[in-house]
Design a protein around this nucleic acid. Sequence first.
DNA 1: GTCTATATAATGATAGAC
DNA 2: GTCTATCATTATATAGAC
Lengths: 226, 226
Amino acid sequence: MRTAEASDGRALSDLTARARIRDAAVGCFAEHGFDTPFRTIAQAAGVSPGLITHHFGSKAALRAACDTEVLQRYHRLKTAALADPGATLTSWLTAPGDAAVVTVYMLRAVQAGGQPARDFLDSLTDHARTLMADGVAAGVIRPSRDEEARVRHLTHQAMGAMLVQFLIAPDTTPDVFVASLRAREQDVVLPQLELYTEGLLTSSDMLDDYVRLVAGPTGGAPAPTA
Amino acid sequence: MRTAEASDGRALSDLTARARIRDAAVGCFAEHGFDTPFRTIAQAAGVSPGLITHHFGSKAALRAACDTEVLQRYHRLKTAALADPGATLTSWLTAPGDAAVVTVYMLRAVQAGGQPARDFLDSLTDHARTLMADGVAAGVIRPSRDEEARVRHLTHQAMGAMLVQFLIAPDTTPDVFVASLRAREQDVVLPQLELYTEGLLTSSDMLDDYVRLVAGPTGGAPAPTA
DNA sequence: GTCTATATAATGATAGAC
DNA sequence: GTCTATCATTATATAGAC
């Protein structure tokens, strides 16, 4: 008899052992990193270490299963947040509980690099692309000469700044980390709002020169009028 | 007979064995990460693995010696670049050779987190602080309501974006990585110049609200007039 | 100072009993 | 399906010969 595999609610303790191991691994990976030994994961799942290998075959396969699980949770949280107009991107990414685990897991995946890092960053970029396009369409965000380059760069920049905050923070639980992010909010929101509102440079000479030099001869997009 | 310990020029092959091991470790750590086994480092240094333990005692001590060495190289490169008015910060960070090793080593140190990450980021922030203050004094950079928060945030953001580029790039040598950074320059310079020149938002409402809400009651710095 | 050989510890993966 | 016991690998650190 197989119980439902937590297609939505989750948190039920009567799951398939495979699902329980996977969820325990997601939690351990978020909390202690991907080098967490099988013994720790098995203990968290309430099973023996050998059973992990029995169900997943190898550590790489377990990691892959956790990656897809976290990506699914991310998309669930994303659609739930899009339905709530009051939630900003950083507000729900730093919510405690499941969102905190997803956020820290993604940070650790980016930290570890490789294809999983690219996959998670692509998902975040997809998210930012729609938000950015909506903002431009609504007139609250200035258009760019290269929208795709901008959304990628801003996503990498935002994720990178968050990753740096994570890397210099002491080792804690996901909930404690996102709480520290919110606590230090004033240190980042003011500079960020200044930058997004007023820019950094007093003159547009550097941008003008660059556009004339690089984007000009190749027939780049015309300068936005907004 | 002890030869000079490479106080400046370096690259001499007649160094103390300890220095040769340290330099080999710096190169291996930059190229293959801090998990490089002793065998690889010993082979690169032309010594036996046991000699590493004999000279440094433990792997943590070797790592610490490499950290201070790289920090010294960074400061040497920094002062050399400050003497050259034509060099920008990213231009000499992405120069091939010794600068590339220093850059990638620092990226890997930040990736690994902990106290070394904080130390390297502090040095980079110190560097940015003077550049930013000079720019504000020269009138090319807008003043901020909180200069210290801005310099920290912008440094973390810039380093974070570079780190993300590094983490999603395929494993290569430091020289190849910084070359790829320069090759992809147009993907990041245009969005960055747009952001630094024009900002992102069309309205200053969010900033005004935030300043009134948070910085106002606590007697924050007045809005810059530039 | 330097090397060879070894001790020790930890981990992922395997084999077989229940 | 699950567990216990074991294997094989890897890496750091140590001991002692030269």
